[in-house]
């Protein structure tokens, strides 16, 4: 069972453009939550809203222009609106690397599904990465056998 979500994509834009789209409240609403209220800056907590019903607190862990932005939240549409640092949460990280002018790589990771601080989860994941991979492969076989 994986304990991390990892995604990577290429975007034809500058690192500054992409960073601002993630880190500025007035831009992030163009592609991610419908609204942002509260304090959307490093060390503070803001509230994302999705549609009429869903609300989610986000705690901004880091905001380093124009290459890194990270926040904590409670994933899975749980509507958690309290202080995310007081409950098991995941760390969402955006790494932006401008490979050539106007062309950037964006890496997204979400870690901490074990309810552990992300750095501990990441290091134990690394130590056990063979184990995780092995097990995931075996389980896929198991699940597909079950489905038959």
């Amino acid at each position: 069972m994986q304990n991390i979500i990892q995604r990577e994509l290429m975007i034809n834009a500058t690192a500054e453009r992409i960073y601002n789209a993630i880190a500025l409240a007035e831009q992030v609403v163009k592609w991610f939550p419908d609204t942002v209220s509260g304090d959307y800056r490093q060390g503070a907590q803001a509230l994302f809203s999705f549609g009429e019903k869903h609300r989610s607190s986000v705690y901004i862990e880091a905001a380093n222009p124009y290459h890194y932005f990270a926040y904590r939240w409670v994933p899975g549409g749980t509507n958690f609106t309290g202080d995310v640092r007081t409950v098991p949460n995941t760390l969402v990280e955006f790494h932006i690397t401008e490979l050539e002018p106007g062309r950037s790589k964006v890496s997204l990771t979400e870690t901490g599904f074990a309810g552990l601080p992300a750095d501990i989860a990441a290091s134990s994941l690394q130590q056990n990465s063979n184990g995780w991979d092995f097990m995931l492969g075996r389980l896929q076989q198991y699940f597909s056998a079950e489905a038959k």
Partner: peptide, 10 residues
């Protein structure tokens, strides 16, 4: 979401 980010920033 990342596709939406791509569309917005491009």
């Amino acid at each position: 979401r990342l596709q939406a980010l791509k569309q917005f920033t491009e």
